[in-house]
């Protein structure tokens, strides 16, 4: 496999974590324009732990996930209500705030005779754990996809449980969910924490893939894309957002065909879908239909 294809495939995998985190919130009826912030928190925290403090990547990833989950929980606590756009606005504001904080964030420590660590707008270089441990790009690709498969399996299993049905119920009609005895706020807070952790995991893997991150990586367009991936792919199954990512990165960004027109095609696709399939390509109806065909 050539480097380009490897890069594209790895990116599809990495952004899938972000798309899945946006998806989880959408299923629970909450729109987030700010998942890039938790992706960024994961990237910075995970990168700092391995590059500056010598943590092994798995441990750093777990810590970064905990931090990402906590951060999103804190955004959710005052803003997740039964109804309304409060949470959407808060995530957007929080994401911009975090991006600015990354720009102001200088944490330089000496590593092997040189200063390393986040350097404001200069970014954060030298996140080299996978090279120091002799992991080839192709192996890393496998690692990313193995983790993605594990997350996906967990989500698909959860979706078939009563919790999964309740989560969907909360998203479809929160008042009705409360009326049948579901603690809507608690479900939403749980989802927020899970979504934050998932985005952070993607961020850790992103930072170690690129070895370099900068605040600009985590701008609003990344959040809008991840939201669109989930909306295009569909809210009927956790496979939906992956379809969205694959369509955008795999088809639009990677083929030269749409070169220069990518955002126009992408935006058009989102607009058309929102009108004709408001819950995406793989919506509940489609998933039920497929399930009935193959069982």
């Amino acid at each position: 496999m050539d480097d380009f294809a490897l890069g594209v495939l790895t990116n599809i995998g990495l952004f899938s974590f972000l798309a899945l985190s946006a998806y989880l919130l959408l299923v629970a009826g909450e729109m987030s324009f700010g998942q890039q912030a938790f992706f960024g928190i994961g990237a910075y925290a995970g990168g700092m732990l391995t590059a500056l403090y010598g943590w092994p990547l798995p441990l750093a990833a777990l810590a970064a996930m905990a931090l990402g989950g906590l951060a999103q929980l804190l955004v959710g606590l005052p803003t997740l209500r039964l109804r309304g756009l409060t949470f959407a606005m808060a995530t957007l504001a929080a994401a911009e705030m975090f991006r600015i904080l990354f720009e102001l964030f200088h944490w330089r420590v000496e590593r092997g005779g040189e200063l390393a660590g986040p350097d404001g707008t200069q970014g954060f270089r030298g996140i080299r754990w996978i090279f120091e441990h002799g992991i080839e790009p192709a192996d890393y690709l496998l690692l990313v996809y193995a983790l993605l498969a594990a997350v996906l399996a967990l989500l698909l299993w959860m979706e078939r449980s009563r919790l999964g049905a309740a989560l969907r119920g909360v998203g479809l009609d929160p008042e009705l969910a409360a009326s049948v005895g579901i603690d809507v706020r608690r479900v939403k807070l749980g989802v927020a924490a899970a979504a934050g952790a998932l985005a952070a995991l993607g961020g850790v893997l992103f930072a170690h893939h690129n070895t370099y991150v900068e605040p600009r990586n985590f701008d609003i367009m990344l959040g809008v894309h991840s939201l669109a991936y989930a909306l295009i792919g569909g809210l009927g199954t956790a496979l939906g957002p992956l379809l969205g990512v694959a369509l955008d990165i795999g088809l639009l960004e990677s083929t030269q065909y749409f070169h220069g027109y990518r955002m126009i095609v992408f935006g058009g696709l989102v607009a058309v879908l929102l009108v004709f399939r408001p819950r995406g390509l793989l919506d509940e109806r489609m998933v039920t239909w497929i399930r009935q065909r193959f069982s």
Partner: peptide, 15 residues
């Protein structure tokens, strides 16, 4: 008021 995108069975299950 039902959860339209859940199955009949699931509507009872979540309740």
């Amino acid at each position: 008021r039902l959860f339209g995108q859940l199955s009949v069975w699931q509507n009872l299950w979540v309740a």
